[in-house]
Design a binder for these strands. Structure first.
Lengths: 240, 240
DNA sequence: TAGTGGTCTAGACCACTTC
DNA sequence: AAGTGGTCTAGACCACTAG
């Protein structure tokens, strides 16, 4: 995202798209709500309906909006179905994917390390929130993960408990829409602490997933490192 | 793909898209060639230019075509740059991605096992070609993989040697365009033979990548299982 | 029946590449 | 200057949903 064009030409539909995206970013359009019709937006912005359509189609492709013929256009929510589809790529080897349960092992605020600062595009020493949790699928613990958040944005997150669906909370309580992210995967041997939490022998192969999740403006909002025991589950992805 | 609509309505631009995709599938439009302009195709098929545009845009999104303003529309090739971007997700931890070198360890035809038949949507006992090869990045061996192909489609592939860029050969010699695929990833311990070929200790964690690659019609064309030593490289993917 | 998104058309003009 | 893809408009009509 960010779509910095630097030089030259910026088509009208992109200005419209950015204007409408801003309405989500600043909370004028809230998750789950219906948005005005194409013709209303077109009149509002004094552009043609076709131009609005192209902007809305772009935003739909980016999963910011959901359009339903005959009903209207809605701001996408971070419900479990969406997260399962877009962000949670681990599925049981048999059967279909389900949303995992979580048990928080620890949560604290601290000063960002150099690595955390680099991942979150903040400065070393700035406050971060660190959460460690154990996740289970169908009652079997299979993921232990560390989540690091910029404290300046998510101040007070821990109060009142840390729920299972974090991206939903980012949106509802902090107005932060997670729109995408990058993942890096490796196979690593289990360290002692992780092995204990997952109930595997030290040195056992684990799938490491290093994710930086980004907001509407493309800036990093969360760093998450998950260690997964993949004897009964797998990471699934499509090549397109 | 396949886009089986079963019941109801099929818009014109989809018929156009399928018609144009068929031109690639049956070789009338060849990899790298320029295709007629929007207006020419529109006149040819007796539809409006805007409808042709929507079909061409869809095919561009599916990476079947490449459009360049002022120059024209071209059939995408399976050159190294495209494969690096679309199909080869392993990158060095430092530096940028490069196309890996390959050393063929063995190749043979055989009767499909039940698992191979299921992956390739053929019948058990039908002929398959099996290729085992070792791949290196920057001179360091890091991937050992088994490739299984339906013998009925790729008969004679082995004659004249097996080159590094297989998808290019599928297209040029057999008219098979690999258009997409599904991957399943796991972390597994190195078996004795794989450990020997990769130069790691048995039991060392390896990233297993199980890929079924599909053709223009969405049918499986290749099954490939890669075992990767990921201490210096990683698998990179975007969440969108 | 009214309102929404989805498709299709026709035409004008802009941006880019090539000759 | 000519030809290509890219943008923008205006309007008509179709498919779907809801009251």
């Amino acid at each position: 995202m960010a779509d910095s064009d630097s030089l030259g030409f910026k088509p009208l539909y992109r200005k419209v798209r950015e204007s409408l995206t801003q309405r989500i970013a600043d909370g004028r359009w809230k998750a789950g709500q219906i948005v005005p019709s194409e013709t209303q937006i077109a009149a509002d912005l004094s552009v043609s309906q076709g131009t609005v359509r192209k902007a809305l189609d772009d935003m739909t492709a980016a999963r910011l909006l959901i359009r339903r013929q005959g009903r209207g256009t809605f701001v996408a929510t971070h419900d479990e179905a969406r997260i399962l589809f877009q962000f949670f790529k681990l599925k049981p080897d048999d059967g279909a994917g389900v949303f995992p349960e979580s048990e928080v092992l620890g949560a604290a605020t601290a000063a960002a390390t150099a690595e955390e600062a680099a991942k979150l595009a903040i400065f070393k020493g700035e406050p971060v929130i660190r959460i460690r949790r154990l996740r289970s699928l169908a009652g079997t613990r299979c993921i232990v993960e560390m989540i690091v958040l910029p404290g300046a944005i998510f101040d007070g997150l821990q109060e009142g408990g840390i729920p299972n669906n974090l991206y939903h909370v980012y949106a509802e309580r902090f107005g932060v829409t997670i729109a995408g992210g990058s993942e890096i995967l490796k196979a690593v041997p289990a360290a002692a602490e992780d092995a204990r939490d997952l109930g595997v022998v030290p040195g056992a192969p684990l799938l490491l997933i290093d994710r930086v999740a980004t907001g509407l403006d493309g800036r990093p909002m969360e760093w998450r490192v998950s260690l997964c025991e993949t004897s009964m589950i797998h990471y699934a992805t499509e090549l397109r």
